[in-house]
Amino acid sequence: MVKKYVMLADTVRCIDCKACVVACRAEWETPMGYSRDWVKQVELEKADGSPQVMLFPGRCQHCDDAPCIEACPSGAAYKRADGLVLQDDAICSGCELCVPACPYDARWLNPETNTISKCTFCQPRIDQGLEPACVDTCVGRALIFGDMNDPDSEVSRLLKEKEKEWVKLTTDEVNIGPNHYYFTAGEAIPDEVMPKLHERHISGQVMENVVNPVGAIGIGAMVLTFLGAGVMKMIGRRNEVNEENHEGK
């Protein structure tokens, strides 16, 4: 059976210790000022006037219909059969067209590599049978990761439990099949953590430019430029691989 990786976040157990963020930064040597994951703190007021704080661990949601993949002109953004949305740095042109396409704000341009960075659920680690770094270091066991298609996995069992209702961060406007679930103990999810379509989403620009041919030409030229850069990177990378294979024979 094909694996289907998902992440569960229990917002009740999260204590905002930031261990997940630190572990992720160490695992991926993330530049200062950037992060592949985060903990969103939302301050609310209860009906009786008392303060309330909700904590939402966040990262790439590895969506079934990931708009970042469609927005990527070079093909660097892609989805694996097991549900992971990944990034091929060898052919990423750093054009950033995928950045505004993500309604979860999970993508950013790495200034050191000039390629797009995002959470990959620590794909190299899970391919070795390990947990993502954030899950491995979560002291409160607020983060749980696994294969939901495996009936014996912890995530599969938890998602089937009637005692807990796990929800996704979706809206009527943005419902692209995220594979990140949250438990809030019945509390409504605040708007601050809900996904939002950005005003300069590339698809929106293209639709505008259907009416504006001059703008469409500009967008088309820009996309072709970035696509060409991505193709050149891809060709270069393939040549490197061929040379390595030839030298190894």
Rank of each mutant, 00 (worst) to 15 (best):
W166G: 12
V135E: 06
G218C: 04
I189S: 07
P111S: 01
G220T: 07
G83A: 02
V39H: 07
W38A: 12
E244S: 13
L8Y: 09
N242F: 13
Q123N: 10
M32E: 12
D88S: 02
N242Q: 15
M7T: 01
Y182Q: 12
A188M: 14
T11Q: 09
V2P: 10
R200G: 01
L227K: 13
K168M: 14
P51H: 00
M148W: 09
T171N: 11
D136M: 06
K3V: 06
D136G: 09
I217C: 07
A23S: 05
M54R: 12
A66F: 03
Y34A: 02
E208Q: 08
M194S: 07
D65V: 14
G146T: 04
S203K: 11
G186I: 14
K160D: 11
C68W: 04
G33S: 03
C92P: 00
C63K: 04
K40T: 12
R237L: 10
R200A: 02
S117F: 02
A142K: 07
K3L: 05
I235G: 13
C14G: 13
A142C: 09
G204P: 01
G186A: 13
C95F: 00
Q123C: 04
P195R: 01
C20M: 06
H201S: 03
A47N: 12
L130A: 10
D10F: 06
W166F: 14
P103D: 00
V174A: 07
G58I: 07
L224M: 13
N212F: 04
V12F: 13
D127T: 09
L44F: 15
K40H: 15
G75W: 03
I202S: 04
V42C: 10
Q205G: 04
M32N: 09
K40Y: 15
L143D: 01
P213S: 03
N110C: 01
C95N: 02
A221Y: 11
C138F: 06
